[in-house]
Design a protein around this nucleic acid. Structure first.
Lengths: 199, 199
DNA sequence: CTATCATTTGATAGTCACTATCAAATGGAG
DNA sequence: CTCCATTTGATAGTGACTATCAAATGATAG
């Protein structure tokens, strides 16, 4: 499976991947050094040694350099792979365990940096919130599949909303506290929800 | 206290209020007629018979003409006024009943139009999502006050996150369905959450 | 190895949201 | 009516993003 023969690995593809990575790396570095809004697309393009036009060929917006989450598809795949006898919440928590084992520490550290940036910069925060709205659809889909109900069922969607909300609160809390471990925070949040949110 | 003598009601103030209302009215009309992104600030300014500079003196951004929610402060006040013996969820539901009685039907209809616009136009949707993040703080504050716990308590914040998420799902669902009554949808959502989200 | 073709790139010019600044107009107060 | 503070409009930016076209570059057939 490693390097299958059909893998598209011409010079062109490799160069594109490198350009893409370079843009993102320099963008994140500049955002970190100067702040998000103080960094212009022209600066990023200059740092990555491409023209501003090319920047927009690789990323639709300046935001997209930060918002693209490489872990997202990994997470979805892991969630789908959980054994069917688990409850929706059980599957969710098992997914997080899987993730914790799969992702190397350094990659996780970079991801965390990105999260802090996104949740603190107001412009980016509103953009990421949209992802939670999408998250509701995603979670509803997963729960529907697991319970044999329709994805647009009121109770299924409402459950998905509650989970998304609880995860949102956990992320918001974790972003404020530099010590916090996001995965642990999310797990605790989901557990508390599962216990019926005792106050 | 009603209409205290110090009430600022000079020509200047009245004119400002009228200008503000005119901008918002024409903005919403144009958004409705041509779509949000196809409408420029210059067009709104022309319709409201002011200069583009003046537009930005009344609203910080184009978004703000739609995002400003006149009902928000009313809602907060109503929530704070609920009897202290109610549970947080109970207080929430009682608040919605109060609102339903207080708001006249035509105003509600306009509010509903606004909601549909905001939740459908992608640019606006991400902006409104930010409001849900703020909503978590707000709800946490209300719950904290009612239970005598700290507003940054983990369980309080997690509860607030779940409520915000469930409301978010209800709004998203109601925006998709032109028949739906948002208040009813939110009430059902909160009730289902209170019942422990049975699936 | 080279000629040809498809893709990628950079340069240019434009639109639109939004900011800063300054002089002219206008309402309020004595 | 006059002087003052506030509000307004005009002008000139900046920065994100789009459209377009010619030049550069990787792939490919002969």
């Amino acid at each position: 499976m490693t390097s299958s023969p059909a893998e598209p690995t011409g010079l062109r593809e490799r160069k594109k991947a490198r350009t893409r990575a370079a843009i993102q790396r320099h963008a994140l570095r500049l955002f970190h050094e100067q702040g998000y809004s103080a960094t212009t697309v022209d600066q990023i393009a200059a740092a990555a040694e491409i023209s501003p036009s090319t920047f927009f060929r690789y990323f639709p917006t300046k935001e997209a350099t930060v918002l693209y989450d490489a872990l997202d598809p990994v997470l979805i795949e892991a969630a789908l792979a959980q054994p069917p006898e688990l409850s929706p919440i059980g599957a969710l928590r098992a997914t997080m365990d899987t993730i914790r084992e799969q992702i190397p520490a350094d990659e996780w550290e970079r991801e965390r940096q990105r999260q802090m940036l996104v949740f603190r910069e107001p412009e980016l925060r509103s953009a990421i919130m949209e992802k939670f709205a999408e998250g509701i659809d995603l979670l509803a889909g997963l729960a529907a599949r697991r319970t044999g109900r329709a994805a647009d069922d009121f109770e299924v969607r409402n459950w998905a909303g509650a989970v998304a909300g609880v995860v949102m609160a956990a992320f918001l809390g974790a972003a404020a506290d530099p010590e916090a471990d996001t995965l642990v925070a999310v797990d605790e949040a989901v557990a508390h929800l599962d216990a019926g949110l005792p106050l």
